[in-house]
């Protein structure tokens, strides 16, 4: 009787979360998944069951999808690598100063996404801080135009935005590492690099994947950054999805594009997880 009451209480406690999950995540996604098999005609959506939308994703937008996955992979890799190095230094080398630096890094999250994008436009532009500094030091005679409005600027901006998000899971995982294991490895003659590869990274593998996944998924779905700092030819998949939902009012194709992006992203994350497992084994 008590056990049953306990189960009932647990169920009741879980009910709000379950309803929120079903109502806010499962139901809208389910609706759009069903719609991804429908078709649009003259600004109207017609129920149907066909795979043309998915076929079009790969025939018409396959290049944009591949480009987007490449940009997201680069941004996530760079952000995760820098975040790991930073978190490692905070955890093992910088002492109290490390905590201060960590707080400062996390405070940048409060700055807002668009502010960061415009900050990089100010830094990388023709009359930006970087060009002005290079000109004043005499290293260049003319401002460098290639710093802004290209894929490199998109990756730099996304990396800056994603960095604090990647630091959080990595620092959390590094805090759980037992100092004595590292001391033992060092006592046995392992250098810093060997300790990181053989002792640290295998233990924080799930956090590495979590940090990478968070960065990758946010970057893959982004369409604002390429619009503001990317090249005119650098439209990412998100820009085309936005266009289908807005300008073209073709939500079935937009939904098919969104689910294709989710599927492709899961494949990339699966491959990354496998690579991390093979690359970072505890010895």
């Amino acid at each position: 009787m008590t056990a049953r009451r306990g189960t009932l209480a647990t169920g009741l406690l879980l009910l709000p979360a379950a309803l929120a999950f079903l109502g806010l995540f499962v139901a809208p996604l389910g609706y759009f998944f069903v719609q991804s098999f429908w078709k649009a005609s003259s600004f109207r959506i017609v129920p149907d069951f066909q795979f043309d939308n998915y076929a079009r994703v790969f025939t018409d937008y396959g290049g944009a999808l591949g480009f987007t996955l490449g940009v997201a992979f680069m941004a996530a890799t760079v952000a995760t690598t820098i975040a790991f190095l930073f978190a490692y230094a905070v955890r093992f080398s910088l002492g109290r100063a490390g905590n201060v630096l960590l707080v400062i890094a996390l405070i940048t999250l409060f700055g807002g996404y668009l502010v960061k994008i415009y900050a990089w436009r100010t830094i990388l532009g023709l009359d930006g801080i970087l060009n002005s500094a290079l000109l004043s030091t005499g290293l260049i005679a003319e401002p460098l135009p290639f710093l802004l409005f290209n894929t490199g600027a998109v990756i730099v901006t996304l990396t800056h935005y994603l960095l604090p998000l990647a630091m959080l899971p990595l620092f959390g995982a590094l805090r759980d590492i037992d100092d004595s294991e590292i001391a033992a490895a060092r006592d046995m003659g392992a250098g810093v690099t060997r300790v990181i590869i053989d002792v640290v990274l295998p233990q924080i593998r799930p956090a590495l994947l979590a940090a990478f996944a968070m960065c990758f998924l946010l970057a893959a779905g982004d369409y604002v950054t390429p619009s503001l700092v990317g090249s005119p030819g650098g439209a990412m998949f998100g820009n085309f999805i936005q266009s289908q939902f807005g300008l073209r009012m073709n939500t079935p194709l937009g939904a098919a594009m969104a689910f294709s992006l989710i599927g492709a992203s899961l494949l990339v994350l699966g491959a990354t997880g496998l690579a991390l497992r093979l690359g970072f084994r505890a010895r």
Binding site: D60, Y61, G233, A235, F240, S243, R248
Partner: peptide, 12 residues
């Protein structure tokens, strides 16, 4: 719709 397809071609 064909104009929009053409414009997508330009963007890609």
């Amino acid at each position: 719709d064909q104009v929009l397809d053409g414009y997508d071609r330009f963007l890609k």
